[in-house]
Design a protein around this nucleic acid. Sequence first.
RNA 1: UCCCCAGUAGCUCAGUCGGCAGAGCAAGUGGCUGUUAACCACUGGGUCCGCGGUUCGAGUCCGUGCUGGGGAGCCA
Length: 463
Amino acid sequence: MQRTRIAEILSAEKTGTGFTIMGWVRTKRDSKGGFSFIEVNDGSCLSGLQIIADEKMPNYKDEVLKLQTGCSVRAFGTLVASPGKGQKVELQAQKIEVLGWADPEVYPLQKKRHSFEFLRTIAHLRPRTNTFGAVARVRNAMTRAIHDFFQERGFIYLHTPIITGSDCEGAGEMFKVTSFDLDQVPKTDGHVDFAGDFFGGPANLTVSGQLEAEIYALALGDVYTFGPTFRAENSNTSRHLAEFWMVEPEMAFCDLEGDAALAVEFLKYIFSYVLKNCKEDMEFFNRFIDSSVLETLENLVSQDFEHLTYTDGIEILSKSKKTFEFPVNWGIDLQSEHERYLCEEVFKKPVVMVDYPREIKAFYMKLNEDGKTVRAMDVLVPKIGEIIGGSQREDDHDTLFERIKEMDLNPDDYWWYLDLRKFGSVPHSGFGLGFERLIQFVTGLANIRDVIPFPRTPGNVSF
RNA sequence: UCCCCAGUAGCUCAGUCGGCAGAGCAAGUGGCUGUUAACCACUGGGUCCGCGGUUCGAGUCCGUGCUGGGGAGCCA
């Protein structure tokens, strides 16, 4: 089954004899001049290839004329410069073989545009559309860029567990993992007795690989995780999934300033990689999805990011004449209206905000000398708000122990995490980034369900 | 989970004051053409989301449930 990908043909503007291409028919236009134009897409790029099928072909009447959107074909022939206007090369077919028919009476995809809501109900066919093909290619390119970025800088890719015994990561509701027969769960004193369960204790799907990443950072130096995470929150928004992918670097011998510098460098790297390597798909998004994505990404790559403290940010917000739905005063968690105001109206560029009140941030963040704030960092970008959250981790054993108790957590659950501060503790930092939100930002897709192949949301596990 | 909006042909939608179920696209048939998500003509196509109620009469009004969307909260 030798074939040449359409992406290769188009990028090199190949011509010559003896080419085989395979793909799915997007449209067909018959000419009474004795031939048909068949546009075939093989997923290797946004553009398809125009195939000219002459009526002299033995199966022209019985098969070629009956081809419809969705059929799969193999075409053999000669690549020539196209006399038509819409394309540089086309395939003059000597032979066209139908691999699979698609009955037009029931095939759901049409040549016209469909709503994203409808396409979600046919997630097995939506990657055959322009938008979802482009999303899949850009998602792939971003995955590669993420690995390239960290690998070029000597980071070790770490596989943290999907199933975890600790329910103490504190990042949200967790999905339970069990092999119990749910109709007959063993109970003691009214509570589930996990001693007889598969793992001999309660188990959950991970909400973050950070704590485990810290273990390896404190042995290997610089590590990163990049894998699926799970939240059982009943969130019904265009920015939340129950299963999503997260990127989490963790660096030993690194303070908050180093952490923030890496986060900025990381974002610029990913954005410029996509601009350089996904030109056709990005132009498609800019034309049909969001006409500002190219300009936004180009600006982010070239602009410096604004740095300021939470305290300064609150001061700017409370002095501003704008009225917010949520009132501003020191100690509040910033709402997305506040974050967007700072990025879009005050600074008109991305903002790195640091040193948040201890009360609104996680227990593991390093306490500042003022005793009031912690070494936390958020990267805020226009339109989305927070895209990266990170911190320098508390590396002092006794301070961490007190913070755990202060947050009403049980120190026994964190014995190994505390051990890391007992034996050769070092300053270390890291951040987390939701991969799908980054893809949303890059592609301009409004709903997060459209940037992951098979979205998992409350009430939906189809496909 | 809360607030708002929507659900009518395969898709996208219109449907006035409660009074015969509509359009565009898609599909089928025919025509035309180096075409460009082609174009022209004709034809077929309906559980008006489900359940209950009001009414002589409900796509339309009321109640309720389900599904989808937008926003909020939670967060990545």
